[in-house]
Write a protein that binds this DNA or RNA. Structure first.
Length: 441
RNA sequence: CGGAGUAUAGCUCAGCCUGGUAGAGCGCCACGUUCGGGACGUGGAGGUCGUUGGUUCGAAUCCAGCUACUCCGACCA
């Protein structure tokens, strides 16, 4: 992409509404623009990151055997009356009336709808297990939205729903999602720690929040330092094999959010030097809730014994739009954002320091073509801005690598590669630079 | 939802207290000089001062209502 043809309205002044660093950087870099309290327009740079994240989530869901679909944002109130939640959900639910005075709502979640869809066609245990998911916009009318996209009212979420004939099957679905989440977040360069979460009236131990540690996190969390070092299961995981042990290895160590924290237990279970107390951002939440909806909505499954019983269900959410904020919170410096390779909006920032200089222009054209052909997704700054401005903007948007081409370097036969995270620069010939950059894509 | 604020140019803000024909910086446009870490000069465009009403000879300024947004708290993927 040529920057001169892109739409990336960068701000020099920091908008006053932005309190936390990720929000400020997203506004400054022209990733989002606020349209109302907790409602954001995603500008092209932000949209690219959103897509990168959604694609990673999608790939990992598919790998774990979940099946993608898409449910609507607008739902009928009657569906929610079946589960009793139309009245229970309260003011957080955005209610809408259509022209025929029918009561509708902008979905805050989809348990009712997926239950309705599955009960219509799944009758036998032979059709299970089933994990269905979608990536869709949700709306929750938060009392006080804040922190930019981290706590908006409208947000993009991946929500998956599992259906099984018995609790053992549901636990297996839970374990699959648990492990898929570890891989998903690891691919984004994040260390997400699963922490025991409140299961509400259902009880049991099958609810975990996935927490990213960050100074600006919304809640206090406590965990064993060793959890931060555990490698994710990885793409070669045998999803049909024994998953229980892998999950157990994670859940054996202490990890809890403030609401679930038991300081005596923490002290007893975790040696002093491994006790971590930090702020955390919740980026995922998985939950087993049994027959809560299937019973109320009569989603019955006939078992091998010929008896009907309500499906055993779980739901599994990932805050896709929130993840952008979380990733920035965990990856930035004074100059701007620093994207992990996998979610960067572009792979390489190509800077032409002297547009109009024929040597610079032709070297950049060659680099742009080669990087594009290699799938490195370059963003080519071909604008007439001065070098200083170009450096600042490129640092701000935080692409992992920069290829800097200017008249002085070319006169000496060199171009410069800069690593955004380390700040290291290296001067080498254009060919060598292109070989290097095209290879590690 | 309780408390506290804010609303003036694309952005950040001043002007309001003490009413008298709307300002700065940045950004934008033109020209020139520049050009390896957010350059400089000259000229220019751009605002029914959130909205409705009131007070007044006269309201960005004083008063009231409304709306939106922000912050603190309680609540949350």
């Amino acid at each position: 992409m040529r920057l001169s043809r892109f739409y990336m309205p960068v701000l020099k002044d920091i908008p006053s509404e932005a309190q936390i660093v990720s929000h400020r950087l997203m506004l400054r870099a022209g990733m989002v623009r606020q349209q109302g309290a907790g409602i954001y327009a995603w500008l092209p740079l932000g949209q690219r990151v959103l897509n990168k994240i959604a694609n990673i989530v999608r790939e990992e869901q598919n790998r774990a055997g979940a099946v993608e679909m898409l449910m609507p944002t607008i739902q009928q109130a009657d569906l929610w009356r079946e589960s009793g939640r139309y009245d229970d959900y309260g003011k957080e639910m955005l209610r809408i009336t259509d022209r025929h005075e029918r009561e509708m709502l902008y979905g805050p979640t989809n348990e009712e709808m997926i239950t309705e869809l599955v009960r219509a066609s799944v009758k036998s245990y032979r059709q299970l297990p089933l994990i269905l998911y979608h990536i869709q916009w949700k709306f929750r009318d938060e009392i006080r939205p804040r922190f930019g996209v981290m706590r908006g009212r409208e947000f993009l979420m991946k929500d998956a729903y599992s259906f099984d004939v018995d609790e053992a099957g549901a636990r297996r679905a839970y374990d699959k999602m648990f492990l898929a989440y570890l891989n998903t977040f690891a691919r984004m360069g994040l260390t997400a720690v699963p922490m025991r979460a409140d299961t509400g009236p259902i009880g049991g131990d099958l609810s975990h929040e996935f927490i990213i540690l960050a100074e600006t996190g919304e809640s206090q969390v406590f965990c064993d330092r060793d959890l931060l070092e555990l490698a994710p299961p990885g793409p070669d995981l045998d999803w049909d094999g024994d998953l229980r042990a892998l999950v157990a290895a994670r859940t054996a160590l202490y990890a809890a959010t403030e609401e679930m924290h038991d300081s005596a237990k923490f002290a007893a279970q975790t040696p002093k030097e491994r006790q971590v107390s930090a702020r955390g951002i919740e980026v995922g939440h998985i939950f087993y809730f049994g027959d809560k909806y299937s019973k109320a909505m009569q989603a019955m499954i006939t078992g091998p014994d010929g008896q009907d019983r309500p499906a055993q269900m779980g739901s599994y959410g990932i805050g896709v739009s929130r993840l952008i904020g979380a990733i920035i919170e965990a990856n930035h410096d004074e100059a701007g954002m620093i994207w992990p390779e996998a979610v960067a909006p572009f792979g390489i920032g190509l800077i032409n320091l002297r547009v109009g200089d024929s040597a610079c222009d032709s070297a950049c054209a060659q680099a742009y073509a080669a990087l594009t052909a290699a799938g490195r997704e370059p963003l080519y700054d071909d604008t007439a801005e001065r070098p200083g401005a170009k450096f600042s903007v490129m640092d701000l948007i935080g692409l992992p690598k920069q290829l800097i081409i200017g008249p002085k370097g070319l006169a000496a036969g060199t171009v410069e590669i800069k690593d955004r995270r380390s700040g290291e620069r290296e001067e080498l010939s254009l060919d060598a630079a292109l070989n290097r950059l095209c290879a590690n894509g």
